[in-house]
Amino acid sequence: MKRSRIIGMSALALMLAAGVAHAEGKLSIYHWFEYMPQELLDKFAKEYDVEVTMDTFDSNEALLASLKAGKMGSYDVAIPGDYMVEIMTGEGMLDTFEPSELSNFGNIAPQWVDVPFDRGRKHSIPYQWGSTSFAVNRDVYKGDINTLAIIFEPPEALRGKINVLDSQGEVLALASMYLGIPQCTSDRNQLRALNDLLQNAKPHWASFGSDIAKDVLVSGDAAAGMIWNGFAAKAREEGANIEYAFPKEGFVVWMDNVVLLKDAPNRDNALKFMNFLLEPENVAAVTNYAQYTAGVTGVEPYLEAAVTDAPELNPPADQKGEFIQACPQEVQTVYDKIWTDLKK
């Protein structure tokens, strides 16, 4: 009697579990922190009857480390930055899709289709893009700020009041631009000059921090700080009298992308989600939330004025940014050494 009841219950539980799996699909997202409005996820879940779960990471490297440590096969899509798409492709972590599998593929802005990190968009679609440079408190310093010297050879007024992103890639790329040397250079004299520049700049820096980049500018702990453009716009809206710089030596341009992961348990839903994010109205909701820029045409009618008018999102036409490159192993080893020596 007792045994038959247990069997009956188990069968019921199994049927229920199977029933759930059939009735609605699932989608598992691995994403940056504070980068996706919950309403948008709810909208997708409702429209396609899909149960959505999302985990977050705080750096491209953390994403890679976590997937390498055995999380492959548990997520359907992830949102890595440009150079990390290239690295993940090289590691064989990404699945491919045909443009015909996404009905909204044609919505991708022309300049973002054939990108250097994913030629012809076989693994990824654009999510948001923006720039990385720095912002300066105009109460403290009134001179010209459109030069990377503000960070690497700062004027007297800013010394000891600078926050730098705790991110090797962005710091070394900006330092290379300031010196006018190519990224990932293997020239020994150039690498030595890069090392010297950073060693001499460090005494003028107050702190290293990425997640604090906005707060230190708002609170006044830092009078200048490396920061992403959307984050700078938020800092300005929170009352800091800061100006975001587009330095003449160059600045970093980045793009976050939705990638289709290999061994995705719900490949169909992943593609539905990617297609959903190519819909101008939906991706505009992300832009309004995160204050970066979408890589899709036709978003303008859905954008809030605060976003379209923000000076941080409108670089001067004659200034060009550069993507961060993924360095080959022998250069990366030297970069690691420079970075460790800088922070020892």
Binding site: A62, D166, T340
Partner: peptide, 20 residues
């Protein structure tokens, strides 16, 4: 201000940072 590595942050950097 995270200007200098501590043992903890040095080890973290090896797993979660660029160094890998």
């Amino acid at each position: 201000g995270a200007k200098n590595f501590m043992i903890g942050s040095l080890i973290e950097e090896q797993f979660k940072g660029n160094a890998g």
